[in-house]
Simulated assay, not measured.
Amino acid sequence: MTTRVMLVSPAAGDAQREVRFDDDGALSEAGLRRVRAAAGALPAADRIFVSPSARCRRTAEELGLTARSTQELAGCAMGGWRGRTLAEVADAEPVAVSTWLSDPDFVGHGGESLRQLCDRVAGWLTRMALDAGRVLAVVEPDVVRAAAVCALAVPVDVFWRLDVPPLTVTELSGRGGRWNVGLGRAPDRR
């Protein structure tokens, strides 16, 4: 019984260009053009989910997907850093930023640790693997990273070594608790 999970990262928004901790902002004009061009390019799926962020919901909508929103696939909660740029936070709290980048249990921003994010996503993946078939989810890049970390059973600090470009598909396929990972391909009509 094989389960195939396709994780689609959303089109770019202004927060990514500004290197801003997501503030649930809209897609950029360029992001909208790109996602509209990709509409209809994803294979059919038995179950379709979306992260609750505005950016992911809009990406799913523009791709023509009817998806169920789930909090389990929300991006990492960044607490007091939400909406601020990385430069602003680094200037105001350089030790905290350094710790955040090196300690997967850091919650000094008042949000969620990377380990908590990975555990949450691992729980969702485990539930998805109970049924064979195709699952498609439009999720924030940090959720894609967390899923890859979980699927590969690597240490959480590998999270920072994974790049997830906008509007790419990361595919997990597996059975019996073992996953294979295909990273960052462009949407296509396979």
Rank of each mutant, 00 (worst) to 15 (best):
M1H: 08
S9Q: 03
A15M: 10
A15W: 14
Q16A: 15
R17C: 02
R20P: 02
D23C: 11
D23S: 15
G25C: 09
A26T: 13
G31I: 11
G31D: 01
R33Q: 14
R34E: 14
A38P: 05
A41M: 11
L42A: 06
P43G: 01
A44Q: 12
A44E: 15
R47D: 07
F49M: 01
V50C: 14
S53Q: 09
A60M: 06
E61V: 01
L63Y: 00
L63H: 03
R68S: 15
A74E: 10
A74S: 15
M78H: 14
G79M: 11
G79T: 13
R84E: 05
V89Q: 00
D91S: 14
A96I: 08
A96E: 11
W100T: 09
L101G: 10
S102C: 07
D105C: 13
H109T: 06
H109A: 15
G110V: 14
G111A: 10
E112W: 11
L114V: 12
R115P: 04
A122N: 07
A129K: 02
L130I: 06
D131Y: 14
A132V: 05
L136S: 05
A137I: 08
V138D: 01
E140Q: 15
D142G: 09
V143P: 04
A146E: 05
A147M: 05
V149S: 00
A151P: 03
V154A: 09
V154K: 02
V154M: 10
V156W: 07
V158A: 13
W160S: 00
V164A: 02
P166A: 01
T168H: 12
R175L: 00
N180Y: 09
N180M: 12
G182M: 13
R185A: 13
A186K: 13
R190M: 04
